[in-house]
C-alpha cells in the first residue's frame, strides 16, 4: 500500500487547549473514576468472593472431576466402547470391558472396570465429547485434593458416587439421549 493511497485514513489527535495541556482535567477525571470504585467497594460492591466461607460457583461449562452417569434403572450407562479411552490425549482412562450381564437387553458390553487417573487427566473434556451414550461427564468439582497418588486414581465405584453427589445439582450437559 502506497503512503498516498486514498484508502488510508489519517487520524489526528484532537488539539488540546491550554487548560487541557496542563493535564489537570484528565487527572481529576481519573481521580473521579478511582474514587467511584473506592466508594463502591465501601458500599459493598466488590467482586471478591471470600472463598472458604462463600462457595465459588464455576461457570456451567467448567470442566472438573469426572462422573460416570447412570441410567433410569441405576445401571452404569457406559457400554465399554473405548471411544473415550481412545480420544483421551494423555491416556488416563483405563477400561476393561465385559459381556453385559443377563437381562441387560439394550447392550452387549459393560465396563467391568472403569478407572480414571485424575492426576494424569488434563481436563480437556474430550472423553465427554467422544462418548456416544453420554456416560462420562465432567462436573463442576474444582477442589479435588488427596493425600496419596493411589487415592487420586478413581475407579468405577468412586466415579459413580460422584454422579450420585452431583446428579441433582448438575443435570446431564448433553441432554438425556438414552435412545439412539
Amino acid at each position: 500500500m502506497r503512503l498516498d493511497d486514498p484508502c488510508i485514513k489519517k487520524l489526528e489527535p484532537p488539539k488540546l487547549n491550554v487548560f487541557e495541556r496542563t493535564y489537570l482535567p484528565q487527572i481529576i477525571d481519573g481521580l473521579a473514576v478511582t474514587g467511584r470504585h473506592i466508594l463502591g467497594v465501601l458500599r459493598g460492591e466488590s467482586i471478591t468472593i471470600e472463598y472458604p466461607e462463600q462457595p465459588h460457583r464455576p461457570s456451567p461449562n467448567y470442566r472438573g472431576v469426572h462422573r460416570l452417569n447412570k441410567d433410569e434403572e441405576g445401571r452404569v450407562k457406559c457400554v465399554a466402547c473405548m471411544l473415550c479411552a481412545t480420544a483421551c490425549p494423555v491416556h488416563c482412562i483405563d477400561i476393561i470391558g465385559a459381556t453385559a450381564p443377563e437381562g441387560w437387553s439394550d447392550r452387549e458390553k459393560y465396563p467391568a472396570s472403569f478407572v480414571i487417573d485424575e492426576l494424569r487427566c488434563i481436563f480437556c473434556g474430550m472423553c465427554e465429547e467422544a462418548c456416544p451414550v453420554d456416560a462420562v461427564e465432567l462436573t463442576s468439582f474444582y477442589d479435588l485434593t488427596g493425600l496419596s497418588r493411589e487415592e487420586m486414581i478413581f475407579d468405577k465405584t468412586k466415579l459413580l458416587s460422584v454422579y450420585d453427589l452431583t446428579k441433582d445439582s448438575e443435570p446431564s450437559r448433553m441432554g438425556n439421549l438414552t435412545t439412539f
Binding site: T34, H37, I38, V41, L42, E45, S46, I47, T48, E50
Partner: peptide, 10 residues
C-alpha cells in the same frame, strides 16, 4: 486497602 478498593477488591 486503598489499592484493593480502587480495583474492586477487598
Amino acid at each position: 486497602k486503598i489499592a484493593a478498593y480502587a480495583q474492586d477488591r477487598i
